[in-house]
C-alpha cells in the first residue's frame, strides 16, 4: 500500500494505537479517582463540620480556578523544586483526578442538596449516626441523581486528557503531534486523531448509559428524550 492510505495504515495507526492505549491508561484511573474525590469533597461541603467544609471549599475553588494546564505544569515542572519528582504519567493522573474531582464535587453537591430533609430525619429516627445516614441513605440517592452530570465530566476528561502531552506524557494527541511535525500531514493526522476521540467518547457515553440503567430504580428514572 502506498500513498495516503499507506501512510495512515503503516505509519500513523501503529503510533496512534500506542497513544490511544496511553490515553486510556490516563482516563480510566483519573475518572475513577476524580469521581471518588468529588463524592468526598461534595459530602464534606454539604454535610461536613466546619473543619472539613472549608478545606473542601478551598480545594474546589483552587482546582476549578487554575487552568488545568497550569496545574499540570505545577505537578510536573514545579514540584521538583521542592524535591518531589513525578513521572509524566503520574503527574498527569494526579492533575486530571484533582481537577476532575473539583468539578464532580459540584454535581454531587447539587444532588445532595436535592435530597429531601425527611430522608435525613427518618435515618436519624431509626438511630443512625450522621456518617451512617450519609453513607447508607443520602449518598446512594444523591449519586443516582448526580450521574448524568458526572458522566458529562468524564466526557470532558476524555478530551482534556490530551493535555498530558504538554508534560511529556505521550498519549494519543502527543503521538499525532510527533508524526504531524515530522511529515507535515497535519490535516490527515488530526482528522484521524479526532475520529478516535469521537469513538472514545461514544463508547464512554454508551457505557455511562449502561451504568445509569443498572442503577435505575423506580423513583429514580431518567426519562431520556
Amino acid at each position: 500500500m502506498t500513498g495516503e492510505l499507506g501512510f495512515i495504515v503503516n505509519d500513523l495507526m501503529p503510533a496512534l494505537m500506542r497513544g490511544l492505549w496511553m490515553s486510556i491508561r490516563l482516563i480510566v484511573p483519573s475518572a475513577v479517582l476524580g469521581f471518588f474525590l468529588g463524592v468526598l469533597a461534595g459530602s464534606c461541603r454539604v454535610y461536613g463540620v466546619r473543619a472539613l467544609r472549608w478545606p473542601a471549599d478551598l480545594y474546589v475553588a483552587l482546582f476549578r480556578g487554575f487552568p488545568l494546564l497550569v496545574q499540570l505544569y505545577i505537578w510536573y515542572f514545579g514540584l521538583p523544586r521542592i524535591g518531589i519528582y513525578l513521572s509524566p504519567y503520574v503527574a498527569s493522573v494526579v492533575g486530571f483526578s484533582l481537577c476532575s474531582g473539583a468539578y464532580h464535587s459540584e454535581y454531587i453537591r447539587g444532588a445532595l442538596l436535592s435530597i429531601k430533609k425527611g430522608q435525613l430525619q427518618a435515618a436519624q429516627a431509626v438511630g443512625m449516626t450522621r456518617l451512617q445516614t450519609i453513607l447508607y441513605v443520602i449518598l446512594p440517592q444523591a449519586v443516582r441523581r448526580a450521574l448524568p452530570g458526572c458522566g458529562n465530566e468524564i466526557i470532558y476528561l476524555i478530551k482534556y486528557s490530551s493535555l498530558a502531552y504538554m508534560v511529556t506524557c505521550i498519549e494519543l494527541t502527543g503521538e499525532g503531534k510527533i508524526i504531524a511535525s515530522a511529515t507535515f500531514k497535519y490535516t490527515e493526522v488530526f482528522a484521524v486523531v479526532g475520529v478516535i476521540y469521537l469513538a472514545l467518547v461514544s463508547v464512554a457515553s454508551w457505557a455511562l448509559g449502561k451504568i445509569e440503567d443498572r442503577l435505575t430504580i423506580p423513583g429514580f428514572e431518567y426519562h431520556r428524550a
Binding site: G118, A122, Q124, G127, M128, T129, V137, R144, F220
Partner: peptide, 20 residues
C-alpha cells in the same frame, strides 16, 4: 442519642421511606 432513638419509633406524616 442514637440508642435512645432506636427505642422511640417515629412515624412521619409524609412517611419518609428511604426512596432507594
Amino acid at each position: 442519642l442514637c440508642l435512645y432513638r432506636q427505642q422511640v419509633g417515629m412515624i412521619f406524616q409524609e412517611f419518609n421511606l428511604f426512596d432507594h
